[in-house]
Structures are given as structure tokens and as C-alpha cells.
């Protein structure tokens, strides 16, 4: 095909992120014959670049002390200067990709396809992709005109990581990228503030009773606390509970909260958005209680119960206590 595919590589503390292999898989779904170029931006990134040559034909390195923290306003300017128009750039759809990519598509004059979870071939210059809307309640097929190039973000975890062709080489693009000076001075990084420690560490819990917006009101949390107590587990939650300030931030499960790996996960009134599910690792035994039979959580859970949680949970708690 007439375009080249680039993949933006996330890395931290010298380690390549899992999304690198996922983008290899994604690129192959767009074009099975694609030779994929990795782009790595940072400071002191030789070992990261070298490790990527095992999977990418070419690895573009942009290495400068001033790039030690990934400020997307800076990186957007650098990429706009070196990625030839008319090509495809894949970026993981996380907090960095969401920051970088929409504006980059404008700068590169290409299409923008956000949060793709699958691809279904290219036909007549149009890429067919799968997306989700309404936090995963429905899926859609979309057509993206890639004839003038595109920036595409791919949802982390949606593509099964693959290794690409080995034997690639590193190309130092630092001088090219910085030819016009360091861009993006209007947004200056100051610091990262670490997450606060809470009263319980849900990342260590074997049993989590997790509540979502379906709990309805703050007073109702009590019945789920009682369930957690009966089960010998801890209470965690989805994001709307934190936004409402009903529980401490340290109890939030998800991409912008904690990553948990319990043995048993009870999802009560949680719809099952990818940002929530992204925080659950290790395939726990998952029970979902939701009054909507079409809630996406039922596709992931092991056991589904279609009930009003406010009615169901007290009965469950009582039975557990009786059975002890």
C-alpha cells in the first residue's frame, strides 16, 4: 500500500509498554504487509530503542535531555515536523495519546480516528474500524478516509500483542526533529503528584465488592459495606462514586485509579466501561449484578444477575451470614 505505518512507543523507566506489541498487531490488521516504524521520544533511550529492533523494521529515536518527561505539547510539534504527511500514525489511546493525537492529526492534515478497538480491512482508501460508544453499550463500524494520512489511537488491551519482524535498525532523528528548535513552550511541565494512600489498599485485596453509579445514593453504600464485611472483602468502586466524593479516591478501580488483582470481584451497578475494566487484572471470578440485561459487564463477568442491587444485596448478605 502507498502509506507507511508509524507506531508511537510508550515507555517508562527504560521499559517498553505492552502497547508496543499491540500496535504491531493493529498495524498488521490495517496492512498485513506493513513495515512498521517505531517512534521513541525521550531522554537516554538507547536501550529502549535497541530492544524495539527485535520487533520493528526501523526505530526512530528522538533523544534529548529536555524530553525526559513526555509533554505532549512538545512532542506534537516534533512529530509534526518529521512524520511525512499522507502516512498513518498509531498511538495508544491513554491519557497521553488523548492529549497528543487530535491536534497532531490537524497539524499533519490527516484524518483522526480515536479509540479504535479493531480493524476490518482497507477498501478504496477507506479503513474500516470498530469503535464503541456510550461507554461500551453499543459498538459501531466506522469508515476512515486514510488517503491523506491519519492519526489513529488504539485502545490499550484490544489487540493481542504480536512480535514484528526482527533485525531492525535505529535511526537517530533527533537533529531533524529539533531543526526548528524545541516546540511547545506554552505549556510547561512542573511535577507529578503521586496518588494519595487511602485507608485500605485495594490492590492487595482478594475479595472486592465494587460499586458503581447504580448504587444511586450515598446512603445505599451501607448495604454494600455489609456485604463486603460478610464476605471478608473490601469495598472498591468505579469513577462516578469518586467524582461524587462518596468514597476515597484510593478505592477507585480503573485506568485512572488502581489496578487490582483479586480472586473474586463483585461488580454492583457497574456498566463495564473499558476504563473500569482496564484496572482489573488476573481474571478474577467476576459476578455482575445489574438491572440492565444488556450492560456490557455481562459479557465479561463469569456470573450475571439481572436484579436491582438494592433488593438483591441485603438478601445476599443475610444468606452469607446465615451460612457461616
Amino acid at each position: 500500500m502507498a502509506f507507511q505505518i508509524f507506531a508511537y512507543i510508550l515507555h517508562k523507566d527504560g521499559a517498553v509498554d505492552d502497547t508496543a506489541g499491540e500496535m504491531v498487531a493493529a498495524a498488521k490488521k490495517i496492512d498485513p504487509a506493513a513495515s512498521i516504524t517505531a517512534i521513541v521520544v525521550g531522554s537516554k533511550i538507547d536501550s529502549v530503542c535497541n530492544s524495539l529492533t527485535a520487533s520493528f523494521k526501523e526505530v526512530w529515536k528522538i533523544d534529548n535531555d529536555a524530553l525526559s518527561y513526555p509533554n505532549s505539547e512538545v512532542i506534537r510539534g516534533l512529530l509534526a515536523g518529521i512524520i511525512p504527511k499522507g502516512n498513518i500514525l498509531l498511538v495508544p489511546h491513554d491519557h497521553f495519546g488523548m492529549d497528543l493525537s487530535p491536534g497532531l492529526s490537524v497539524k499533519l492534515d490527516g484524518a483522526y480516528l480515536p479509540d479504535a478497538i479493531d480493524f476490518d480491512g482497507v477498501d478504496g482508501g477507506k479503513l474500516k474500524a470498530v469503535r464503541q460508544e456510550f461507554s461500551g453499550q453499543v459498538s459501531t463500524h466506522v469508515l476512515c478516509d486514510i488517503s491523506g494520512g491519519a492519526v489513529i489511537t488504539t485502545r490499550p488491551g484490544s489487540f493481542a500483542a504480536e512480535a514484528g519482524a526482527a533485525g531492525g535498525s535505529v535511526v537517530d532523528k533527533t537533529a531533524d526533529a529539533l531543526a526548528g528548535g524545541m516546540p511547545g513552550g506554552k505549556r510547561r511541565f512542573v511535577e507529578v503528584i503521586e496518588a494519595e494512600m487511602g485507608d485500605v489498599d485495594i490492590t492487595k485485596s482478594d475479595i472486592l465488592v465494587s460499586i458503581g453509579r447504580g448504587i444511586g445514593e450515598q446512603e445505599n453504600i451501607e448495604i454494600t459495606e455489609e456485604l463486603a464485611k460478610a464476605m471478608g472483602g473490601d469495598l472498591s468502586c468505579s469513577r462516578p462514586i469518586i467524582d461524587a466524593k462518596w468514597l476515597e479516591k484510593s478505592r477507585q478501580v480503573g485506568t485512572s485509579g488502581k489496578t487490582v488483582k483479586p480472586k473474586v470481584y463483585m461488580a454492583l451497578g457497574i456498566s463495564g466501561s473499558f476504563q473500569h475494566l482496564g484496572g482489573i487484572k488476573g481474571s478474577p471470578f467476576m459476578v455482575a449484578i445489574n438491572k440492565n440485561p444488556n450492560a456490557p459487564i455481562f459479557q465479561i463477568a463469569d456470573i450475571g444477575i439481572v436484579e436491582d442491587l438494592l433488593e438483591f444485596v441485603p438478601v445476599l448478605t443475610e444468606k452469607i451470614n446465615e451460612s457461616k
Binding site: V138, N294, Q299, F312, V315
Partner: peptide, 24 residues
């Protein structure tokens, strides 16, 4: 440059076993 073709109901996993019967 980007347009929606259709909507469909997602199939994410194998699907939960849905428990049937009364609440009890």
C-alpha cells in the same frame, strides 16, 4: 473523513452465565 456505517451490539467475551429464578 470519518463516518459511522452502522451500530451493533458488542461481543466482548464469552458472556456470563446468567442466574435464573427468584431472588432467593
Amino acid at each position: 473523513k470519518v463516518s459511522r456505517v452502522d451500530y451493533f451490539t458488542p461481543v466482548l467475551g464469552k458472556g456470563a452465565e446468567i442466574l435464573e429464578g427468584s431472588i432467593d
